[in-house]
Each structure stands twice: as C-alpha cells, then as structure tokens.
C-alpha cells in the first residue's frame, strides 16, 4: 500500500511535469504542424535562466519563474522570425525534424558556452521544500506544488481555448488556416502568439519540474524524445489528450522504474509502440488530411 501510494504520487507529479512542458508543443503541432524537436531546448533555457536568477541575482522563487518565462520568450523571438516561420505547415516532416534538431544543437552549444557545462540546481524556497501533511500521509510539498501547477495550466488553457476570442480564432486557424485567413483572421499573429505561449509554458515546466527532470547540459537531447512521444500518444493539439498521455506515460515509466529498475526505459517505449500502432493519430487526436 505504501509503495503503491508513493508510486502514484511520483507518477502523477512526473506526468504533470511532462504535461506542462508538452502541452505547449502539442498546441504548436496542432496549429502549425511543426514537429518541433527543439521544444526541450527552450525548457532548458528557462531552467538555466531560473537557476542564474536564483543563485546569482538572489531573487525569490516566484520572481525567478517569471524572469525565466519572459527571458525564454524573448530569446525565442529571433528563432520564430527567422526560422520557424519558414516551416509552418510545410508537408515535409524531414525538413522540420532537421531544422529543429539543428536549433537544439545550436542552443545546447550556446547555452553551455554562456553558463558553463555543469548541472544547474534550482533551489526551492523553504515553503516548497520539506514534507506536507495531508492528514493521513506525508507528501513532499514540491510534488503537490507541481500537481497543482499542472491542474491550473490545464484549466487555464481550456478556458483560453474554449471561452475567449483568441481561442476561437486559434481553433479556426487549426481547422482551416486558409479559410481563417480569408475571413480576416491574421493567422501570422495567431501563430506568433501561440509560439510565445508554447515556449513560455515549456520554460515554466522546465523550471518547476527541475526537481524531477534535472537541468543539465544535455537536457534538451535527453528529453527531446519524451516530449514528442507525449504529444504523439495524446494527439497533437488536444489538452485532454496531452494530459492523459502524460499521466499514462508517467505511470508506465515510474512503475517500470520502481518494479523493474533494471529495464529502465524499456516499458516506456514498449507502451509507446503499442499505443502509436493502435492509435496512429493519438488517443484524442484528429486525422489531418
């Protein structure tokens, strides 16, 4: 019982981190049809900035998160203007893969040149470290914090996409970009705003998830595949899909590591193959013509 409970907590927290980082990628792939392998690289920039702000500038954790998110979005603007704009909605996935792998390598090289090639700890404030008593069991506060962050992000995104004017335009552009354009929706602005939103979420996830996915020089490469897999299993562009895929894969991975640690990622990728083979467009995705 005790093991089951701690597996569940870790699995849900891990799944939520995956969700926060991957949901931005998922929206981006649903709207712009870009297989963006560099998403993890932007999460990594966020982590590095937060670590720098906390340890060298000495600001509060919440300020550090804010700085990291804004800083990452600013850093990503040249990439959007010069590179991503060329590959939106292009049919050839190979070129997208190559360009975004190139961006990933480039960012890894530059970031490590500036900040130095070492593990970047993000120290937690005292309110978030230590255990939290929830009545019948003690839980690590940070795990609870991550889970709450994940739920908040999911709800906020749902409101944004389903209930606001921006969400209506976004959904129109997803369904038929050309027609949305013809009706007077400035799709390039929608694209740019979505890109910034996706990158910001990635950076946010990178910072709050740093306890579970530590920020290190090869972060972008190590988790590149994981984020892409979450989106593919959930279905591009679907919040519910990304959430369920994150939790499912988080559970598969954590359980596998607890019960059969010698097999590592084996169960993770086995479940991925099975799911993708059965549902090629993801659990909640729509087929794009």
């Amino acid at each position: 019982m005790r093991t089951v409970f701690s597996i569940m907590t870790d699995a849900v927290a891990y799944g939520m981190v995956l969700f926060i980082i991957s949901i931005g990628l998922s929206i981006m792939m649903g709207l712009m049809r870009v297989v963006n392998l560099a998403h993890g690289a932007f999460a990594m920039i966020g982590g590095y900035l937060a670590s720098y702000a906390l340890r060298d500038l000495g600001v509060h954790y919440s300020v550090a998160i804010l700085l990291a998110v804004i800083g990452t979005i600013i850093a990503s603007i040249p990439f959007e203007l010069l590179l991503y704009r060329r590959i939106y909605r292009k049919a050839d996935p190979l070129m997208q893969v190559l360009m975004t792998i190139g961006i990933t390598f480039f960012i890894i090289g530059i970031v490590n040149f500036i900040f130095g090639p070492s593990l970047k700890p993000i120290p937690l404030p005292p309110t978030l470290s230590g255990p939290l008593d929830i009545g019948f069991r003690m839980l690590p506060t940070h795990r609870v914090f991550v889970i709450i962050c994940g739920i908040t992000v999911a709800l906020a995104l749902w409101l944004l996409i389903e209930k606001t004017n921006f969400g209506i335009r976004l959904r129109a552009s997803v369904d038929h970009s050309g027609m949305a354009d013809a009706l007077g929706i400035r799709t390039e602005i929608i694209y740019a705003a979505t890109f910034a939103l996706a990158i910001g979420l990635g950076a946010f996830g990178g910072v709050v998830g740093a306890e579970i996915l530590p920020i290190e020089p090869y972060y972008a490469l190590r988790y590149m595949v994981t984020f892409l897999v979450v989106v593919s299993v959930g279905g591009a562009g679907s919040i519910l899909g990304a959430l369920s895929a994150s939790l499912l894969l988080g559970l598969a991975d954590t359980t596998g590591k607890y019960l059969a640690p010698e097999f590592g990622d084996f169960f993770f990728y086995l479940s991925v193959i099975v799911i993708v083979f059965l549902f090629p467009h993801g659990l909640f995705g729509k087929a794009h013509a």
Binding site: T104, F106, I108, F113
Partner: peptide
C-alpha cells in the same frame, strides 16, 4: 559544445 553549435 563548439562542435554542437557548429553542427546546429
């Protein structure tokens, strides 16, 4: 790391 930057 210079190598990675250049490949990218």
């Amino acid at each position: 790391f210079h190598w990675m930057t250049m490949v990218g």
